[in-house]
Write a protein that binds this DNA or RNA. Structure first.
Lengths: 193, 193
DNA sequence: TACAATCGTTAACTTAAGTTAAGAATTGAG
DNA sequence: CTCAATTCTTAACTTAAGTTAACGATTGTA
């Protein structure tokens, strides 16, 4: 399982055997059951997550309703806002499936930067990449209808539609579960003709 | 006008007189007329912008229609996607008002990093800040209705509503201009009661 | 100043999302 | 295996956004 992490890292920087051992000895790998809550609203935590296998989701509870705003699957990283600003979290993070991930305290990350300076390079590349992706996602979301968003998701992350409960997917698309059902039926009608 | 830039920088790092002179001598300040187009779809450019006074907007043309996805006002920076990936731009950038900004080639930015290493620190702080803001904005957008988005904007960026054409504001809120007019009338009705 | 273009609003009508409720299918726990 | 909870879909109705068109106000330009 750790190999998944090292394969990922190797795309950005080359680690020595010693450095890999340093990382392994940190004991940051966790396997969690579906439904496990990693972070709750109001909670302070400095943990960052990197998904190796499985899927986690970020959601708000607004007026008693869950609003899912993001999913993170294999090789995706999530640094909760509260880990940066040290304020109580405004959202929840939980496992959509049984999930294996790394849980790294953000301060421990800083230690690593000292021990393995090339990690800084990787992180600055990664954060640029994530920001760019984020901006494109936001633009696409703003400029398209729920139906277009669904079709777009079908192209870009077809796996998500299969592995995620539909009511979570609906709020991820900015609509209600009932609307998603109708929307899918509508699309299916069009294809049939 | 340059003082605005140095005031901004001073929040992150302290520059010496020499360093300030280095920056001034780069001749990166531009004042542009309302309506000036900084970047067109399909164009390749390595320029990054930092608004000192005025307002610029980023928009797509989709099926012949302008879709505005972002505004940048005083002390906000915009690095177009094409400046990073060196692909033709997918969107336009133009001046909403007469605008003074810095235009810096991204390669020139790299030179600066070598000449003034502390700029790297500032940039990594800035990119973390921007990513965090971006994520919160996206979450707010996803979890709220057009009406809530408008009310939210009224709280957070009341100036935008005044200085920006309503049809541009509408697409920024993810709706059509006519819907924005109705939405405002609706809100006004509620307040009147 | 005069004329054209752009802009903002209103109205009537269409389409799709929100709401409420119900029921079938699936999942999970005991 | 069984029962309860969760999930997904469908339906009927409401609300709001999209569409098309018109019109007055504002802006920019010749």
């Amino acid at each position: 399982m750790q190999d998944l992490l090292f394969d990922f890292i190797s795309k950005y920087v080359t680690l020595t055997k010693d450095e890999m051992n340093d990382i392994t000895s940190l004991d940051i790998f966790r396997t969690l059951k579906k439904g496990t809550i990693l972070l709750k609203e109001g909670q302070k935590s400095k943990d960052e997550y990197f998904v190796l296998k499985g899927c986690i989701r970020k959601y708000y509870i607004i007026d008693g309703e869950e609003k899912t705003t993001a999913f993170f699957t294999e090789m995706e990283a999530l640094t909760p806002h509260c880990a940066i600003n040290n304020e109580p979290s405004e959202y929840f993070i939980s496992c959509v499936e049984d999930t294996t991930l790394t849980v790294a305290n953000i301060d421990l990350g800083v230690d690593l930067f000292i021990k393995i300076p090339k990690f800084q390079i990787m992180c600055s590349i990664l954060s640029t990449e994530i920001l760019a992706k984020q901006q494109i996602n936001f633009d696409e979301f703003k400029t398209s209808s729920p139906e277009q968003r669904y079709l777009n998701l079908l192209q870009k992350r077809p796996d998500l539609i299969q592995r995620v409960p539909q009511h979570q997917l609906a709020s991820y698309l900015g609509i209600k579960a009932e609307s998603l059902s109708r929307l899918k039926a509508r699309i299916f009608e069009k294809i049939k003709k």
